[in-house]
Amino acid sequence: MFFTQLFTVLYVFTAVRASGLPGNSTAVVPSPNLVPVAPLGNVASVQNTQGDTRLYFQDSTGAIVQGRVTKPFLSGGTYLGSAPLIPASEVLPNTPIAAITANTATYTAIRIYFLSRENVLSEYMWTSTAGFTGGPTCTKCLTTQGIVVQNGSEVLYAMANTAFNQFRVGFISAGQPATISEVENLGSGWGVAAYA
């Protein structure tokens, strides 16, 4: 009797779920030029106003790689491949990742945030004049602030104002694990505050 009732409930639940699907949904069909991309965790991305996109994700080696897409796929964009960016030795396995850029027609700067193996909030930055800099010795990077994130936390976000000279990065602090904390740079240095 119990199994009959369970089967009936599962059947009704499945039928209700199936009936709620949109009638004109579109299936994703792989293109003949399919490029396999297998991120281990979340993926962060930035794009300029022309649609050129950079993807940041952790690959099977544990490194964070940068992928490039020329423009949105529905507009004829193509994936140009990926290259290692941040060594696995600097990255927590399955780290959350966040990225920001200025809203311009060409990239002038990009900032990537992630967690180190010691759960330190870390940053790599790219500028059109200096290329990528980062790691424990980057004096301009957030990494040198030594902000420790709560072990096991998956919360990480970043945002910038349109002038791209002020940044905010949200996370769960090891010192304040019951709320979200933000580190903010208003152009003159970093400061930290927790949500009240």
Rank of each mutant, 00 (worst) to 15 (best):
L85K: 02
F114V: 01
S153I: 01
G51F: 05
A63P: 08
P87S: 00
G51I: 05
L21A: 14
Q166V: 02
Q176M: 01
Y113V: 00
L92R: 11
V69Y: 07
V37D: 09
S153H: 03
I64F: 07
A178E: 13
P136W: 08
T129Q: 10
P39Q: 07
V28R: 15
F73M: 12
P93C: 01
P72Y: 15
E182C: 02
G67D: 07
G187D: 08
V16H: 09
A98S: 08
A109G: 15
S75T: 10
L85T: 03
R68A: 14
E90A: 08
L10T: 12
T106V: 15
G191C: 07
Y107S: 04
S153R: 04
T104C: 09
S19F: 11
Y113D: 03
R168C: 13
G189R: 01
A194K: 00
L40G: 06
T143E: 11
Q50W: 10
E118L: 06
P84V: 00
S181G: 06
P39L: 02
G77L: 08
V91G: 03
A83P: 02
N161W: 05
T70F: 07
V155G: 09
P32K: 06
G189P: 04
E154C: 08
E90L: 07
A98F: 10
G20V: 09
Q150V: 04
A15H: 13
T139R: 09
Y113C: 01
S60K: 09
L21P: 00
N48I: 05
F2W: 13
P177W: 03
G23P: 05
N42K: 06
A15N: 14
R111D: 10
A174H: 09
R54D: 04
N33T: 11
R17I: 14
G67E: 05
L55W: 06
I64E: 05
E154I: 10
T179H: 02
T4H: 09
V148Q: 14
A178D: 10
I86H: 06
A130Y: 09
V149Y: 08
R111Y: 14
N42G: 14
L156P: 04
F114D: 04
F114T: 01
G170M: 01
A99N: 03
T137M: 14
G81W: 07
G131T: 04
Y195N: 12
Q50A: 13
